[in-house]
Amino acid sequence: MEYAQLVTDDRIRVAILGSGNIGIDLCERLLVDDDFEIVALAGRRPDSLGLQRFVDRIPVIATDGISGLLPHFDSFDGVFDATSSFDHPGHWDITREHGKWIIDLTPSGMGRPMVPCLADRVDAMHLGLSVEPENLSMISCGGQSSAPMLYAITRGVSGISEVEVSVSVPSLSVGPASRRNVDHYVEATQELAAQVTGCPNAKAMLVLNPADPPVMMRTTVFVEAESIDLDAIRIACAEMITEVQKSVPGYDLAVEPYCPRAGLVSVTSRVIGAGYYLPPYAGNLDIINSAAVESARILGHHRLYKEVRT
């Protein structure tokens, strides 16, 4: 299938599905980003705070989910899906039919995994030259925050036998869809950990912290390996932190790399949110939405590149 004709200038024109915490934060972020233009926002409930919030700022506000986007598919390049992993498969069918890319912010795990800072470093994330529309999966906030640390650790170990990711996020930032999705979150996060480290023996865990005032998101990774060079890992971690901070300024180490015992290395990162919608404690929204925006930017440039080539 051919990509639809580029509709307009260099701006990437997008539609957003989902008006929950993630969708709202994403809209706020894209509205102040010169590379993007939001054409439409679709939710399910006319009275939802998310939809009302953008009535004067986004041209099309649809209240009947993806159906509301159908008349407008010619006017955008791709879709951000911020609904739930149960709804994503249907959304992807429709966007693919229309030749549009989709950025999946749910943990459906259907599409190509994408962690922007690792796009050129991890095989599974390489964008091909196929003209088929892309489905890029953001996996989960825990996936986005653990992958750079896991990748950094792979720079200083050999013979990895097991990897583990445990994520704690403030309860206040986790909406109902994400709660029903919890198994998909765990499964997609551990699959990403396996892809980044090349070790199929991966485990992920998610815990919600109810403290109020909220405790910022923390992500702890463990890697068990035959040999561990802690100095190399420290250097690689620092490099990855700098890399991630370009788009997520609040990303940092909470606990430096250390070995809890011989043959095991652990790092903990934390994210202070940029505060587009929820307050800075919601770093989990920040890291997945930054990833989505950067992925769309990559896709935008990649698509232009492909069209020049073909």
């Binding site: 865990m205 815990v207 912290n209 109810p210 405790v215 923390r218 702890t220 606990v255």
Partner: peptide
């Protein structure tokens, strides 16, 4: 207000 399974904290 640490809850269960937050060993790393």
């Amino acid at each position: 207000k640490i809850v269960a399974a937050q060993e790393s904290m």
